[in-house]
């Protein structure tokens, strides 16, 4: 299943609650694999990114990200790297 984050949430992903609620929805759907499309997402806050990876780590679903722009990819990479410690 593909979820476009711009349509699901907003083109700016500010709030940690948005990430938590996103994964609550994902975890309650019957699909096992999800592609999260970040096309046209122009900003990701640190709070959102942290909550996103925390929720992703706890989720039983397989989740991958696509279309992360140069504006938002550095934040996601930084937080994902911190996840490894």
């Amino acid at each position: 299943m593909i979820i476009k984050l711009k349509d699901e949430i907003n083109s700016a992903l500010d709030f940690n609650q948005s990430a938590t609620e996103l994964f609550d929805k994902i975890n309650n759907l019957s699909d096992e694999e999800f592609i999260l499309d970040f096309e046209d997402v122009v900003f990701i806050s640190m709070s959102f990114a942290q909550a996103y990876y925390a929720s992703k780590k706890r989720s039983p679903k397989k989740v991958t990200e696509i279309n992360l722009s140069d504006d938002v990819n550095p934040m996601m990479e930084m937080i994902e790297k911190q996840l490894m410690f």
Binding site: I9, N10, A12, D14, Q17, S18, S45, D71
Partner: peptide
Amino acid sequence: NESDEADFLSRYVEKLDSEYGSYFVLRH
């Protein structure tokens, strides 16, 4: 409504001058 709140923050930062810190810093 987090989408409304995100839109508000985007509109607010767009009114600021990004030469002060940069757009990302202001937005952050």
